[in-house]
Nucleic acid binder design. Structure first.
Length: 362
DNA sequence: ACCCGACCTGCTAT
DNA sequence: AATAGCAGGTCGG
C-alpha cells in the first residue's frame, strides 16, 4: 500500500533562505543531505525532502505510514495556549497545527502554512541583513557570503533534549546522539528509500526508569543522566504542556525556568529560548561566540579564561545592543560564518583549492 | 560573585 | 602509534 508523495513548490529567493546553511548550522540536528542539494528530515511528525533553485523551494511530502497515526502516544495534544494576544505572532505560533493532523498527506494549503511557520517566512531576511549591515561593519563584511541564514521555529521538546546533548560536544556527534535518541525512544513514522524515520521521543518515554543506563550504553556519557532527569522534572512540572507554556513567558523568566532543568545552563537555555520559544534576541554564548566576540567586538575580554556569568551577559548584551530585537538571528549568521564546515562558502577559496584540501586530508 | 576541576566520547593534530 | 586537545557546557565545591 504505497501512497505516492506530494509535491509543493513556492517562491523563495536564496537571499531569504539558504537550505544548505540553515539546515546544517547546528540549530536542528535532524536534516540529512540525501543527494547533492537535497535535504531530508522531519518537521512535526512528518518526513520531508527539500531542495531549492534560485527562485523556489521544492517540498516533497512523504506520507505518514498508517499505523503511526493511530499510535496512542502520537496523539498527545500539544495545545499551544490560546488567548494571550499581547505578544507578537512568533510567540503565539500554532505548533499545534503540526501535531493534531493525522492524515497521511497534508493539503497544499496546510503544507504552505507549515513551511511558513517552520521557516518563519514572514520575517524578511533581506531587510534584516540590510539593517544589520548598516549597524555593524563586521556583519557587512561577513554576511554576503552567508545569505539566507534563518532561524527555524522548532519543537520545544526536540530542542530541549537535542541541546542537552550538545554540551561539550561537536555537531557531528550531537547529530549522531540525537539520531540514536529517536531510534531508541521514538516511534516509526515513515520509510523513505529504505530508511525508516522515527519521531522524536515523547517526554514520558524519556522519563521512564532505565533510560539513563541505556543511554550510557549508547555513548551519551554524562548527558545520559541529564536527559533522564530533565524528562522526569518536566513531568513533575506538568509535562510537555508545561514546556509549551513557557512560550508565554517574558524572555528572562523563560530563560530562568529552562535553567531549572538538569543539564541546561545559560547557554543551552538561550538556544532553546531562541530556537523554540520565540525569543529572537536570545544570544547563546558558546566557545565560538566568545571567540568571535573577543576577535571582532570586545578585545578586552581576551584575558578571560572562562566565560563567567558576567562575561556571558556582557557579550550577549553587546550583540543585542548592536543588532536589536532580532539579535539572535544576526548572531546565527556570524556563528555560521565561523564554522569550519562552511569554509568552502567563502569566495576567496576557489573550488580548486578546496579540492586540494580534501586530497591533502587523505 | 567568581573560579576550578571533573565529566563521557570520539575525532584531529602533532 | 600514542596522547593531548577540543567540541555550540554544566555542575558541585
Amino acid at each position: 500500500m504505497t501512497m505516492s508523495s506530494r509535491l509543493f513548490r513556492f517562491a523563495c529567493k536564496k537571499s531569504e533562505l539558504r537550505l544548505d546553511i540553515t539546515l546544517q548550522c547546528g540549530q536542528s540536528f535532524r536534516w540529512r543531505e540525501v543527494n547533492p542539494g537535497q535535504w531530508r528530515g522531519m518537521i512535526g511528525n512528518r518526513v520531508w525532502t527539500l531542495s531549492q533553485d534560485d527562485t523556489h523551494i521544492v517540498c516533497i511530502q512523504h506520507p505518514l505510514e498508517q499505523d503511526s497515526s493511530t499510535r496512542q502516544e502520537e496523539k498527545i495534544k500539544r495545545t499551544n495556549n490560546s488567548g494571550n494576544k499581547s505578544r507578537s505572532c512568533h510567540k503565539t505560533r500554532k505548533t499545534s497545527e503540526r501535531e493534531n493532523n493525522t492524515e497521511a498527506l497534508l493539503s497544499t494549503e496546510k503544507i504552505e502554512a507549515l513551511m511558513n511557520d517552520y521557516f518563519q517566512l514572514d520575517v524578511s531576511l533581506e531587510k534584516m541583513y540590510a539593517l544589520w549591515s548598516k549597524a555593524d561593519q563586521n556583519f557587512a563584511y561577513v554576511s554576503p557570503q552567508f545569505p539566507g541564514v534563518r532561524m527555524l521555529n522548532q519543537d520545544p521538546v526536540e530542542n530541549v533534549f537535542s541541546f542537552i546533548c550538545s554540551s561539550n560536544n561537536n555537531i557531528q556527534r550531537i547529530t549522531m546522539l540525537v539520531d540514536r535518541l529517536c531510534k531508541l525512544y521514538g516511534s516509526p513514522v515513515a520509510t523513505v528509500d529504505g530508511t525508516t524515520w522515527n519521531s522524536f521521543p515523547r517526554v514520558t518515554s524519556l522519563a521512564k526508569s532505565g533510560v539513563e543506563e541505556t543511554l550510557r550504553e549508547h555513548g551519551f556519557g554524562y548527558r545520559a543522566k541529564f536527559i533522564s532527569k530533565s524528562a522526569q522534572m518536566i513531568l513533575e512540572k506538568g509535562g510537555e504542556e508545561w514546556l509549551f507554556s513557557l512560550r508565554k513567558l517574558p524572555y528572562e523568566e523563560c530563560h530562568a525556568q529552562l535553567m531549572t532543568l538538569n543539564g541546561i545552563g545559560a547557554k543551552v537555555s538561550d538556544c532553546i529560548c531562541l530556537m523554540s520559544m520565540g525569543h529572537l534576541g536570545a544570544i547563546p554564548v558558546d566557545t565560538h561566540v566568545f571567540q568571535i566576540a573577543v576577535r571582532d567586538y570586545l578585545p578586552h575580554l581576551r584575558s578571560c579564561k572562562t566565560v563567567t556569568d558576567k562575561v556571558y551577559k556582557e557579550i550577549a548584551n553587546h550583540f543585542r545592543q548592536i543588532f536589536g530585537e532580532y539579535a539572535g538571528w544576526a548572531h546565527s549568521v556570524l556563528f555560521s560564518a565561523d564554522l569550519k564546515k562552511f569554509d568552502s562558502l567563502k569566495n576567496d577559496e576557489s573550488e580548486e583549492q578546496n579540492q586540494k584540501k580534501k586530497k591533502k586530508k587523505k
